[in-house]
Write a protein that binds this DNA or RNA. Structure first.
Lengths: 338, 338
DNA sequence: CTGAAAGCGCTAACAT
DNA sequence: ATGTTAGCGCTTTCAG
């Protein structure tokens, strides 16, 4: 059996209450007893039992992360931010990879057995109202990242502004025939980026041709996948229309597929077709992608910070923070030659 | 306050013992009471308190994963296997990303507070003897993946055989001047691959030139990084020697860097230099890398299965499973033209 | 300042 | 078959 505070108490000839006080360095303990207890604890190589602590304290120092598509680079990088910040605060992280919205709801509802975790962070997945109610009712801290609900703190990326900047960049480069390769329209970011793309073209007086816009038909990762980008280009060729001179692509990973497909058809990037995408995942630089950088690590970091704040002050007003993506210029847009 | 079994007991007019029995569907409960309890539980939307359960049961249904370099694709893919298998068994996963061997030891020693997790899985990091002792003493299940210690179950990849096959493939393609771009030599897989590479050349009667072998000098990810591959090629050019006609590269991610660097010097792959690497991460196919496939998902899956077995039968004999990497032929070796 | 005791929510052994 | 009770290891009153 592991060593408990009873063992320490006996050995140090004090009550368990005192041991507990020392271990939690709460006030009112003589230096003497304090030292004695600490010495014994060290000697016995005492490790507190996390569950017992959690049960008694009614807090567990562990957080829940519900994240879609474990395989997606965007999330991996956000998770890194989460992870490193958490470590610094002595929290543990339980990760739930949800492959569907339903699974996410399942986790949201069940894995968050009150007491099990001090709070949960939801990434890029919708928060249905009935689930939201549940969290409000049970008063469980919930932080939303890359998704939104008026009742909870959220950290988001300004897709509207991001898509606008991407599109403007292409326009500034002289392109007038600009297409878009998008993820699945049911995804919120995908929808926002598409909308902003169109608006920007419009307000710049550029004609929008629907046939050079393609929304993903692939389900995997909501269309934020290499295959999705590749397939979109094939679709474009099937449509048998004139290729635009530039594309705004809704994610880097898709852009990689787009480039591959284009090359198969002997179109080179950026010479024949310029590309600006979104995310700036680690791979982006390997492919020389001009892209809208999302501060993924920082978002993960901030999510944790917000969570800790929320745990501190459960009744603080709900906050919503927006990151604006930055344009990172590499070669894929043709603005800079390799 | 959340609803407890006391609430259910009261409402269903039974004792808490009965409630517990029903909830754990243990035997000896009338259908009648059983149904009544279940109905009440559902009505009250009862959720068991995981910590209280864990405390009473002395098992927590959560596993610990200690993994290096959260950012490494190899591990991401292994984790996917772990994650999906875990879900199926109702276990939770606490992930610790260790950036150094020291940090890993720290986690190994402290995060595994007995009772907190039912077992821990250690990936690709060394298990020092004093830590091993600790685990044996406390009798905590420990599964080793891509690392080894005689006292614990391990799941490994046969680097020797893998490197041999890779090298033989290159030889079979007619190359006689073959170099190797390796990760940091302090990494066990890196060392094994290098050794096997040399042995294979030797036993094939091919002269080994040390100047076309380079071990990474970069620390990040033990040299299993794109930068490391890139830098290695630069080093080779600095050495001002004749480029070999082929390279065995110790990981896909390095190979990507190698290709980029080679291109900068106007060497094309596979026409001027053929490449075979190791891992078969998702990216490998995008870069058309011929590589030694490590069954990452399967390894994660197996790790969990082994863990569950070990938890079942703590005294079963220690097992050690070896996966042999498969040669996946794409274009980078020149055996197959695009 | 410190010991004793109650309780966190649940399981499991013990009665009945 | 079911109610009662004793912990699981710790924190936190409450006395003193």
């Amino acid at each position: 059996m592991a060593v408990t505070i009873y063992d320490i108490a006996r050995e140090a000839k004090v009550g368990i209450g005192t041991v507990s006080r020392v271990l939690n360095n709460s006030a009112n303990v003589t230096r003497q007893t304090r030292d004695r207890v600490l010495t014994v604890a060290a000697k016995l190589n005492y490790q507190p039992h996390a569950f017992a602590q959690a049960l008694a304290r009614k807090r567990s120092s562990t957080l829940n992360a519900i994240i879609p598509f474990f395989s997606n680079y965007f999330f991996i990088q956000v998770l890194q931010g989460v992870q490193e910040t958490l470590i610094a605060h002595g929290f543990d992280l339980i990760i739930h990879g949800a492959n569907t919205q339903e699974q996410a709801e399942e986790y949201l509802l069940h894995s968050t057995r009150k007491g099990r975790v001090d709070g949960t962070m939801l990434f890029s997945l919708g928060l249905p109202d009935h689930v939201a109610q549940e969290y409000v009712k049970k008063d469980i801290p919930l932080i939303l990242v890359d998704t939104f609900h008026p009742m909870f703190d959220s950290i988001r990326v300004d897709n509207i502004e991001g898509a606008k900047r991407a599109t403007k960049h292409l326009i500034s480069l002289g392109h007038t025939s600009i297409g878009m390769i998008n993820a699945k329209e049911k995804s919120v970011p995908a929808r926002e980026r598409l909308m902003s793309f169109k608006e920007t073209l419009q307000s710049s007086g550029i004609v929008i041709f629907d046939e050079i816009i393609v929304n993903s038909t692939l389900d995997k990762d909501d269309g934020f996948s290499r295959e999705s980008g590749y397939e979109a280009v094939q679709e474009l060729f099937r449509r048998n229309i004139k290729m635009p001179s530039a594309f705004f692509v809704s994610s880097d990973i898709q852009a990689i597929g787009v480039i591959a497909a284009l090359q198969e058809h002997n179109f080179s990037v950026p010479d024949d077709v310029a590309i600006v995408s979104f995310d700036d995942i680690e791979l982006a630089k390997y492919f020389e992608l001009t892209t809208m950088r999302q501060p993924m690590f920082a978002m993960g970091e901030l999510a944790v910070k917000k969570m800790l704040e929320r745990i501190e002050k459960p009744s603080a007003p709900v906050s919503s923070i927006n990151f604006t993506p930055d344009l990172i210029i590499r070669s894929s847009c043709g603005a800079k030659k390799i």
